[in-house]
Computed example of a mutant assay.
Amino acid sequence: MNFKVLTLPGWQNSGPDHWQSRWEAAYGDERVGQHDWMQPLRGDWIARLEEVLLQQDRPVLLAAHSLGCHLVAAWAAHSQQTARVAGALLVAPPDVRRDNFPPQLHRWSPTVLQPLPFPSKLVTSTDDPYCSFEASADLARDWGADLADVGARGHVNAESGLGDWPQGRAWLLALPHSSHPTES
């Protein structure tokens, strides 16, 4: 089956050297653009994802980074359109419960912690400055996502030296063929 990939950047968007931007250039993935990248409102971001998803004429794969991972969880908890999603790659979600979480992002708390209704993989680093490995593992468990450890790669962004990140792309494309963790 042919899937459309939607990229979901986090707070402040993803720059030109970010793996999401590189995937858009290389594969024609579509970025879900948000009205305000600096003062993100969860409800606005959810509505925008829903709007873009409804415009698609085929099933989608979601490639989320950072706050975009929380967008996937919050959207899935409210949408009637989750069957349109064949899988989600959730990369480097921040821990929104941290004391030093930026005040612009406080509206993203509390974290939606229910299992996602589609296959997902949460990719984390052992030295992400925005989320401990343990907190990432807890999110993966709560969201029903498989956990992948990429080692010491920081926030798994442009500064991580991933380039086109072929391993991430392979994980994304394998999601529709994996069994959903909540299936028996």
Rank of each mutant, 00 (worst) to 15 (best):
residue 23 W to S: 11
residue 9 P to V: 01
residue 141 R to K: 10
residue 172 L to H: 09
residue 156 V to L: 00
residue 1 M to H: 01
residue 177 H to K: 06
residue 74 A to D: 00
residue 52 V to G: 08
residue 143 W to N: 10
residue 12 Q to G: 07
residue 40 P to H: 03
residue 101 F to P: 12
residue 89 L to S: 07
residue 69 C to R: 11
residue 134 E to T: 03
residue 7 T to N: 04
residue 64 A to Q: 03
residue 67 L to V: 04
residue 107 R to D: 07
residue 40 P to K: 01
residue 71 L to R: 01
residue 98 R to T: 14
residue 95 D to P: 15
residue 171 W to A: 02
residue 10 G to V: 08
residue 9 P to H: 13
residue 24 E to D: 06
residue 48 R to E: 08
residue 65 H to W: 07
residue 73 A to E: 03
residue 70 H to M: 11
residue 175 L to S: 11
residue 121 K to T: 05
residue 42 R to Y: 07
residue 97 R to T: 09
residue 101 F to A: 14
residue 103 P to Y: 10
residue 88 A to R: 09
residue 131 C to Q: 05
residue 63 A to H: 01
residue 181 P to F: 05
residue 164 D to T: 02
residue 67 L to K: 13
residue 56 Q to G: 15
residue 24 E to T: 08
residue 180 H to W: 06
residue 72 V to D: 02
residue 47 A to R: 07
residue 19 W to I: 00
residue 19 W to F: 03
residue 183 E to Q: 14
residue 5 V to P: 13
residue 76 A to I: 02
residue 51 E to A: 10
residue 28 G to R: 00
residue 173 L to N: 12
residue 126 T to N: 14
residue 61 L to Y: 04
residue 175 L to W: 03
residue 174 A to S: 15
residue 96 V to R: 15
residue 172 L to N: 11
residue 44 D to N: 07
residue 29 D to R: 13
residue 4 K to S: 15
residue 6 L to R: 15
residue 41 L to Y: 04
residue 117 P to T: 08
residue 172 L to V: 04
residue 58 R to W: 11
residue 102 P to V: 00
residue 103 P to F: 10
residue 145 A to Q: 13
residue 157 N to C: 11
residue 114 Q to S: 08
residue 137 A to N: 12
residue 92 A to N: 12
residue 2 N to A: 05
residue 84 R to N: 08
